[in-house]
Every structure is written in C-alpha cells, then in structure tokens.
Amino acid sequence: MSDKILQVKNLCVSFSSYAGKVQAVRDVSFDLYRGETLSIVGESGSGKSVTTKAVLGILSGNATIESGEILYNGADLAKFQDKDFADIRGKKISLVFQDPLSALNPIMKIGKQIVEALVLSGSTPKGEAKEKALDLMRRVGIPQPEIRFNQYPFQFSGGMRQRIVIAIALASDPEILICDEPTTALDVTIQAQILELINEIKERSSLSIIFITHDLGVVANVADRVAVMYAGRIVEYGRSEEIFYNPKNPYTWALLSSMPDLDTKEQLFSIPGTPPNMLYPPPGDAFHERNQYALKIDQREAPPFFRVSDTHYAATWLLDPRAPKVDPPPILTERIARMKRRAEDVR
C-alpha cells in the first residue's frame, strides 16, 4: 500500500467564462496508492470531477491548469500536450462515466465497441480480440456473452450497460480506474451489483481506483481512503473509518449529518445557504458563511491542514491549539455511537 502511483500536487484549475475566471479547483493535493480506492466526495460544483478530468487531460477548451503537478510514472501530466496523452488515456488510466447510455455508441454493436477498445489500446491483435472481448464480458458478469456480443446498447438494461462501460475501461488493463459517479444513474439494487463488481475487480487485479460520488453510503462501501472537497479545495482526508467515525472538519460534519440513514428520527442538520459562487471564492475558509462553528480567523485566512493522525488530516482552524473546543452536532455523535454499538453487536 505504500507505493504511490499518482501524485497530485497543488493543482489549480480555472475556467474562463464571460463573467470572469471560475476557480474550480484551488490548490488540491492528494496521493493515490497502488491497489487502493480513493473516494472523492463533495457536492456538485465542488471540483471533484474537474480534478479527475485534469488527470486525464480531458478538461474542456476554456479550462486551464494554472499551476500544480500531476505526477504519474515520473512524468508530469499537467504539462502534457494532447498527443502525449495518447499513451496514457484509456490505456494506463481509464474512466467510467456516470451515464452509461451516453458513454456508448448507440449505432455500434456492443461487441465491436469492446473489440475497438482492445485493438486501439494496442494490447491485442485483431484476431484474438473477439475471444478477449467475450472474456471481458464474462468477467464483468454479462450472461450469454456470445449472444450479447452482437446486440446494440438499447437492448441492454442500465446496469448491464454500465458493466459494458466497465469492461471497455478494463480492456487495456489499466493501472488506474477513475469512476465518476458510476452508480448515480442506477437503481439501488443495480448499484449494489456494480459496487460489488468494482470491489471484486480491484481485489483481483490490484487496480487503483479514484471513485467520485456524493453518496456517502457508496463511499463507505468502496473507499479505503476518503477526500472531502468543498469549493475547489480538499477540506479533510483520511482512511474511511477515520472520516466516518472521527470526522474533524465542520463541513464533513454537516455533510454526514444532512443525510438521513435508516435509523434517523431527529431533525436533519441542514446546511444553510448555498455553495459559494466560484467566480468570487470567499476569502479565508470558503465554508465560513454557512458554518455555525466558524471562527473569526476563518473570514480572513484559509486554514492549513492539521494532523489528526498519520493518515488523517483536516483543514479547519478548530484543530488549532488556540481554538475553542467544539463538539460535532449531536445528531452526528449519536449516529457514530449507534454505528459503534452495531459494530460490536455484529462481533
């Protein structure tokens, strides 16, 4: 687990628009270790998708990487031109999109789409491609692959389509798989199957996964480590247990306690207001306007990362030794206590 496969350092991405510069990603740093699943959580507009698009070099035309490095295999992807990505995109780093229907070509047979991915990745000669494609379809759990091979995307259900998209992503035997909300468009029962599949593939082929989602239940299922993003910044990161059982950042508290779980009875903790407009990111801690625990310094100065444990860091002034001691909202502490009791019951 100690082997870093991808390092993102101080990444800043902005979009130019008529109104001005939208600062979508502001000084984001994270490491991805071999064989782990790193989950990036946040609301829409928090910059989680933009970060991974920068890694793949598929940012839209009006976006620029202002500064920062994306280190993969000794090369800095942030400096890459489009043609340099040819050897990496879809070969070493693959992407699974949110909507499996728009990710597939509607007028091309499923089999041909997988074969195309195999041949273009250069790993498979044309003659063997069909056999390997059928293999991939079996691997992602498509029943009767010989028949399905000659069908079109519209003949597949949503879950089956997502399996095909995953098969295509795996065709080149990548080292990193980026999943951008892969189950958001799916039903809960299908979602459970796809998550099982992704977990199983990770176990079997020591793949590293970046998993983007806003569903904390899904995060708890797949993630080894979690990074929480807000307004273009990572505000807290740590191992999954640390984030769920010992969160430190007020935004993580708010995120966790604004979703009901199956035992929730009390009033939900709702975050007032809306996420900030990234044309004019607020000075200091971007969350301070919505944060009931905000300190005066939050308005002036963005908090640095404070160490909670070797693997757990949180950017909040509350962890400064001079800050007043604050407890998380009761709905959250009660829920964590309930989860701990349940964990002991199972044992």
Partner: peptide, 30 residues
C-alpha cells in the same frame, strides 16, 4: 417494514441500501 420485511423483493431492496458506516458496509450481504 424495515424491521420485518416479509416479501423477498422488499428484503432484497433493503439489503441493497448502502449505509454511511464502513464497518457495517464490509459485512453487509446483499
């Protein structure tokens, strides 16, 4: 309904809900 689901489909549906609890998630059987 959540404590005593009767119909097999209800059971299946309930068992598929991911919960924000990593230790529970690792043991959850669908």
């Amino acid at each position: 309904l959540y404590l005593h689901p009767v119909h097999p489909y209800t059971k299946s549906l309930l068992s598929a809900i991911p919960q924000p609890d990593p230790l529970f998630e690792r043991k959850r059987a669908r």
